[in-house]
Design a protein around this nucleic acid. Sequence first.
DNA 1: ACAAAAGTGTTTCGACTACACCCATGG
DNA 2: CCATGGGTGTAGTCGAAACACTTTTGT
Lengths: 296, 296
Amino acid sequence: MVVAVTDQGPSILTVGQGSALPSGPFELGHRSLQSGLRAWVEEQTGHQLGYIEQLYTFADSDRIGEQRQQRVISISYLALTRAEQAAGPAQRAWRRWYDFFPWEDCRAGIPPMIGEILQPRLLAWADGASNDQVKRERRQRAAAGFGWDGHAWNEELVLQRYEQLYEAGLIEEAMRGPRPGVSLPIPGIAMTADHRRILATGIARLRSKIKYRPVVFELMPPVFTLLQLQRTVEALSGRLLHKPNFRRLIEQQELVEETGETTADTVGRPAKLFRFRHAVLDERVVSGMKLPLSRS
Amino acid sequence: MVVAVTDQGPSILTVGQGSALPSGPFELGHRSLQSGLRAWVEEQTGHQLGYIEQLYTFADSDRIGEQRQQRVISISYLALTRAEQAAGPAQRAWRRWYDFFPWEDCRAGIPPMIGEILQPRLLAWADGASNDQVKRERRQRAAAGFGWDGHAWNEELVLQRYEQLYEAGLIEEAMRGPRPGVSLPIPGIAMTADHRRILATGIARLRSKIKYRPVVFELMPPVFTLLQLQRTVEALSGRLLHKPNFRRLIEQQELVEETGETTADTVGRPAKLFRFRHAVLDERVVSGMKLPLSRS
DNA sequence: ACAAAAGTGTTTCGACTACACCCATGG
DNA sequence: CCATGGGTGTAGTCGAAACACTTTTGT
């Protein structure tokens, strides 16, 4: 799962009609899995990868080989890069991740589809439970996950939300196989196999990680304005931030330094340009960025 | 890596003279890796596992098979259990984890060995660097990791500290292989292959996890006093906590409820007994426990 | 009485929030 | 002049940290 932030928002590299994550066999002859992965992706896509992190290793039954004697092991990774480089061979394209998870983008307020589509269908699912105990648990979980009745929205619960929707049979992938779906799936583009689940895991990990490690900078150009940085964090977390407080937090933590230059081309007052202070990585244990949420 | 907290402190289940973590081949015929693992460990050791979490998947060159055509893939796990059950077959024993990492136990203050042994040898290693830039970086990293000159001790940096010591050639495992060690290793029991590295990863993960998930309770008996709970958290994190504030934090978060009983057998005033409120897991996203550090 | 453990009250301090406001530039 | 983005000051709020102190038991 290769992530970049383009002018279209946070995006992932896809293959095959944009419905699959890039994948390939283990490369032999590399020092480690990570270095093999890095070389493979850079060869295949022409993208220099910045940060790489292992997500999860699967070997579940729906991945068991035909003879049922050999497991297929899949190791999923999250990688960050800058989107600028050329697109490389066809069949590979950047796709906005909110095309797959439209309910995860709360930058323009809680998306109407949550109240209009997800809530009634999840509640219907809860009411379909056989006993009251289970009904209450399902309603409780849905409320906590989607921020209903008094619960605040928590942008990190990407995977939990996906799993609840899957369990409720609202996700297209859950309608495949033996029992084909009896109703329409909710909006959001489906993916091959369990790739959308891996994507949800990756988004959740990234939303969590930006708060305690300065990984955002892997997605930024070498030099940027504070507003560009804020827009990137907002795009990843799916939430709007409070500008003045955001700037203060960044500068307090000494994560960035001024280059001395300012932007010239834009509307409005020219902004100071900053670069990431790589030195902080040695100086101390760096926490990432708190999210000073904006109430709007 | 199976963890329990015994009266000896936090311990791991070991095999083979207490210098290896339990390990085995993938089990076929299970729904998932986790359920296979759970069944395997319970059969082998007679311990019911509570929480299980994947740590990391390795397939590095020092694990490549003899013909160099087949990688060996190792998936490491962290599991929590209660220590009470019988020991099971011989060859398996609980070992305190601080026997392997004596510098990680700061409950009685920063251990003298850090200043007396680690600091001089790490500084000597730093000074052995070829140029001044590298020298400064090494000293900087050591200071940040071990809490020297103005840096606070951070109990989560278990893996970073281990890797620094390894890189500096002070760890017995680093002295194996082509270039046998030229000096004595520092205190701390060595383990088979890279098992001590896996252990460091697991300790770090657990120390981090208790802060944002209520996993401590997997290590507690069904009913416990707040002091027992505090001692367990202290044992895991390797730090002393402030009693009054600890109790308030626990009760504020409504993680526990009174059973109505009190202890009878102990010295001092009888303590109320508590149990974990499993209900919170549905109610809301539960954060674990902040660590109200004690200055002493 | 004293030690040991359980528990309570209160003050202080600093971080995050929110709101109000000013600055610089292009159209 | 006004829209857009850049940027500063400051009062309020809330939670964590520190300190002091009381209560209940066993020896």
